[in-house]
Design a binder for these strands. Structure first.
Length: 493
RNA sequence: GCUCCCGUAGUGUAGUCCGGUCAAUCAUUCGGGCCUUUCGAGCCCGCCACCCGGGUUCAAAUCCCGGCGGGAGCACCA
């Protein structure tokens, strides 16, 4: 039955899942312009990759334009290194950025728009204390400054710009609807004053900073954004930003909000990581215990796996829990095809083998690609190999074991005794174990939980440095060094 | 408290707009089997889900109402 069907029809593999993302409604003609808008508080982490990749997928599908907009309008939360690290991370993710915009280059633009909002009576300078302002919003009452004329507002705004006010003394507020049923949407701050910390890029040249709702609205319009995809946490920001679009008669982009992602067991907070690096708790932004993009790369997680994962998850508004398991499954699909196989023996015990003088072992580098050749080991008398303590114990208990690609052994008179090399013993139920030759070198595998697995590994080609290998019966790991000791970072089983 | 969003198996997802072809898709996990010189990969089989209650209808995962549950926002952060 099945044989009658064209076999190529059955070859559809799971990695071929493509374009599961629904089409985007085309708003303005067919040239899509989209953006990713990270704040430069540190490098990108797993949470950022969803927005970066979702947007990238659509830009690629529609041959659109992709803008990386660095949102550095809060000088208190900027790591200058992030300006360099974020583009690196995006590049590693395979995201094609066509233009990079830095918001701190655009203060004058935000001031211009602020003036226009003032001129049309949709913005005012509020001199209230933050607590009073909060109370006004809660009670749906206008603050005393709300009815100032554009002239008065312009004058006050001038004074803001010329440092007449200190930090916290004045803000430019964008009008929405003071009676809006959603308290989160009522009049919101568009620009504020910060003069206590200099900006890493502009120093103290500007002390009036736009709030993200203003700068985002202005830039989304100025840059011609057609579609905006971002997390649900921005739902209320979208409503606020739409007020600015409406005030100024701008055509709005189409907004999409995906659900929140909680990533279990991941250290993501940049401030926590930054502190940890400072105190020496973490080795750096790429410490394998972290959830940063750099840490993923270091562990041998392929960017394509992260991409496939997010495509699979899609753009639904439901909140989800990130599944490491699924990510690892996607990664395994990719790395299993090419990863060289090596023996890493943890908790190693060096044992003597009697009853044979010489064995030549030819262990395939990859079980499915024999053309890649073998790892060849010649063992001569007195024969010794490393086994894991666990395997050795099982060997003693069962009285027999097969060492993969080497030979069969029996436990006779308290000695590991050569028992030929006939693999048919496996059919008789013999267990199979891996081993390492006596010329193995010390090896350490760093696991994401912070633990280190120590042992020995057979000599590994220098070409494997930086690549993902499979330590048989242990898991996939990315090789960092091969000499004088092997160090590797664990990806998954 | 107020506003908004959401609720399909352990996890993620398709289907929900335009009711029937959905005794519900795919992936992953888990269990079993085959194969096999990895406790890997591959192949095969299996388990597990439409939050609850009403209503409309010949027919509801899909529409309506009410509950319940989860999340977010209500910042001079992004």
């Amino acid at each position: 039955m099945v044989e009658d069907i064209d076999p190529t029809l059955l070859e559809k593999t799971k990695c071929e899942r493509k374009n599961v993302l629904p089409d985007l409604p085309m708003a303005k003609g067919n040239k899509v312009i989209m953006r990713v808008a990270p704040g430069p508080s540190g490098p990108l982490h797993l949470g950022h990759t969803r927005v970066a990749i979702l947007n990238d997928e659509y830009v690629k599908r529609y041959d659109g334009k992709y803008i990386n907009r660095i949102e550095d309008t809060n000088p208190e939360r900027i790591d200058p290194e992030a300006y360099r690290m974020i583009p690196e991370d995006l590049e590693w993710l395979g995201v094609d950025i066509h233009q990079t915009i830095i918001q701190s280059d655009r203060f004058e633009l935000y001031y211009d728009i602020a003036r226009r909002l003032i001129d049309i009576g949709q913005a005012y300078v509020c001199l209230c204390k933050p607590e009073d302002m909060r109370q006004c919003k809660e009670d749906s009452v206008a603050c005393p400054d709300r009815d100032q004329s554009p002239e008065e507002a312009n004058e006050l705004f001038d004074r803001m710009l010329s440092h007449d006010f200190g930090e916290g003394e004045a803000v430019l507020v964008i009008k929405t609807d003071i009676h809006h049923p959603n308290p989160a949407v009522r009049d919101f701050v568009g620009l504020r004053i910060i003069d206590s910390v200099p900006h890493p890029k502009t120093g103290s040249r500007y002390s009036v900073y736009p709030m993200m709702n203003l700068s985002v609205a202005v830039d989304d319009h100025e840059l011609g954004m057609t579609h905006v995809i971002r997390g649900k946490d921005h739902l209320n920001n979208t409503i606020r930003q739409e007020y600015i679009f409406n005030h100024l008669g701008w055509e709005k982009p189409l907004y999409f909000h995906y659900g929140l992602v909680s990533i279990p067991d991941a250290i993501l907070k940049t401030s926590t990581i930054g502190e940890g690096i400072h105190t020496g708790e973490f080795s750096g932004w790429d410490d394998v215990r972290l959830g940063t993009v750099r840490a993923m790369a270091r562990r041998g997680i392929q960017s394509e796996a992260i991409r496939n994962y997010w495509i699979d998850v899609g753009m639904k508004e439901v909140d989800i829990e990130f599944s490491w398991e699924n990510l690892y499954a996607f990664n395994k699909q990719i790395v299993d095809k090419t990863a060289s196989r090596y023996f890493f023996t943890w908790d190693p015990e060096l044992i003597d083998i009697v009853g044979v003088d010489r064995i030549e072992a030819h262990c395939p580098i990859h079980p499915d690609h024999h053309d890649l050749g073998c790892r060849d080991h010649t063992l001569t008398a007195p024969l010794k190999v490393y086994m894991t303590r666990e395997d050795l114990n099982e060997f003693k208990q069962r009285g027999s074991i097969r060492l993969k690609d080497l030979c069969n052994l029996r436990w006779d008179d308290g000695k590991a005794t050569y028992a030929g090399n006939d693999i048919s013993v496996l059919k008789e139920g013999w267990k199979i174990a891996h081993w390492s030759p006596p010329n193995s070198i010390p090896a350490k595998v760093f696991l994401p939980d912070g633990t280190i697995r120590k042992g020995v590994a057979e000599p590994i080609s220098i070409d494997e440095q930086g690549k993902v290998v499979q330590f048989e019966r242990f898991g996939f790991a990315r090789i960092e060094t091969v000499d004088p000791e092997v160090t590797a970072f664990f990806a998954h089983t």
